[in-house]
Nucleic acid binder design. Structure first.
Lengths: 286, 286
DNA sequence: ACCTCTGTTTCACTATGTGGGACGGATGCA
DNA sequence: TGCATCCGTCCCACATAGTGAAACAGAGGT
């Protein structure tokens, strides 16, 4: 019960989410997700069947969504995800959102470790440093926002790589050039693949003087509500302060921080605590 | 009133859209669009005020959407577009949707002109040919699906370029290399800018032997329900069949086809060819 | 300490969404 | 060609499900 999770306790303004769900929303969202899984589009009939909605109800929703430009129909009458839905969220870059949500957690991590804290995400074939908090030490690893690094040699990059869907991962690996920058550098694709397996098993990535002698990084993956890898967070410092004995501690802090960010992004893994009380207002139907 | 628009009349299966709107949907969509215009996120209070919803109602919706992963909150409680909403429609490529909706209209156009009909969209810094219907003539312009061309020398590309937001347009123009492929080629950026102005005013683009001597294309822009340029459609043939006297006719057919596709994408425009409203955006918060 | 601002919860009311059923056009089968 | 079936669209009486005023509870601000 010690002051472990600052970010959580600070925000007393918002309580647990205990509001009753809205039926219409549940139904509409189920339509969205069904349509998202059906790239070829779906007929009214199929939508009604697969969502369990009444045909009339589904029709009313679909007609409304179509008029609003969220859905379009081809000439057979099949409904498809429309322009407006695709462009939603295109204005605010998603990375800005992640950055904003990560800030408080990064600050905690920075306070706990006194080392440089980085937040990164895949951007093209590289890792983009979305946000950086530099260590207060004079001797430190310096990075800056907007910086890009190869995906295969940083802990930040490896953490992303390890949890990417295999197809995407392999495509990216094909673009990697394996430079031997230090004696510890990974120079073989097969070697990297094995390393990614280890990373996935233990839950975090380590760069132990692979890119620069004397520099060490520990990174953990951040997931969003779809369960997809969204970003990664790392702690970086000189090996003199981040020796073998300290790495497990750091790794624990980093994975914890990553998990907290994932949760604020809506990621739900196996119940961290209690189940959610159903809070049914009235029992109905079969 | 003769049989002008085949694609419309054929689909007797679907009548006019006369279903009653769903109140909850209207409200939720207004929240989506408000949030989309506010990259920095919005507090419950602001959302309720700006959408005209009751605070309780807005709260219930927002809480539900957050639980579903469609929205996220930062630690101040502000709501932001969340992961699930961003990824919607990422599965089915939007180009596939456009292609499917355009097919019947392309076929009409093909029948009306007997020339090659192309459908293109911006992909990176080039034009991607999404779909192609080749002319039945032995002497024809041949293209194929998946082909890419420079954006500055094809009618397809110029039509897209002319209606792109100025910032995006200028960025793309910076990447153009102006090759002199024929005596008619545009070789100066300033010259191209002037041409884009003309294109916008008359509503369609023409490539008159600019990329290949003897080849002529006429292209018109396709808009989606957000009013953004989504693609372009062109008719291409030898100058021997597409002389100066025939171009106005073709242009009419092409712009008509483009307008029909735009409509099926949810684009609604009272004025077919007046100037575009300024679409001013709010500077900052209140 | 105060006051005022948030977000959250409750609860009785009734507007609002519901869904069975009917209609008409389109397609398939014989 | 006619019959049968399927689909999307529309209608309307009914009661569920959404509504919103008001009360509650913390967090800041002064």
């Amino acid at each position: 019960m010690a002051g472990v999770q600052h970010a959580e306790l600070k925000t007393g303004r918002l309580r647990r989410s205990g509001a009753a769900p809205v039926g219409v929303l549940t139904k509409v969202l189920s339509i969205f997700e069904l349509l998202d899984r059906a790239p070829g589009g779906l007929q009214l009939r199929n939508i009604a069947d697969q969502t369990g909605l009444n045909k009339s109800t589904a029709y009313r929703f679909l007609a409304h969504l179509e008029r609003a430009g969220y859905l379009v129909r081809d000439l057979t009458g099949a409904y498809l995800i429309g322009p407006r839905l695709v462009h939603l969220g295109a204005n605010s870059t998603y990375q800005a959102t992640i950055s904003r949500l990560s800030r408080p957690v990064m600050e905690d991590l920075w306070r706990e470790t006194d080392e440089t804290v980085n937040l990164g995400a895949l951007d093209g074939t590289e890792v983009l440093y979305i946000d950086v908090l530099e260590s207060p030490h004079h001797f430190r690893l310096s990075s800056q926002k907007g910086m890009r690094r190869a995906i295969n040699c940083t802990a930040l990059g490896k953490a992303v790589l390890a949890w990417l869907p295999p197809a995407t991962r392999d495509e990216l690996l094909a673009h990697c050039k394996f430079e031997k920058r230090t004696p510890h550098s990974i120079t073989q694709p097969s070697e990297l693949l094995a390393e990614l397996g280890r990373i996935q098993r233990r839950g975090y990535a380590v760069d132990n003087e692979e890119v620069e002698t004397g520099a060490c990084c520990v990174a953990a993956p951040i997931f969003d509500s779809s369960g997809l890898i969204a970003a990664s967070i790392s702690v970086a410092g000189p090996v003199t302060r981040m020796g073998h004995n300290r790495i497990p501690t750091i790794a624990g802090l980093v994975t914890g921080a990553a998990a907290r960010i994932s949760r604020s992004l809506g990621y739900k893994e196996a119940r961290p605590e209690h189940e959610r009380p159903p809070r049914s207002r009235k029992a109905r139907r079969a």
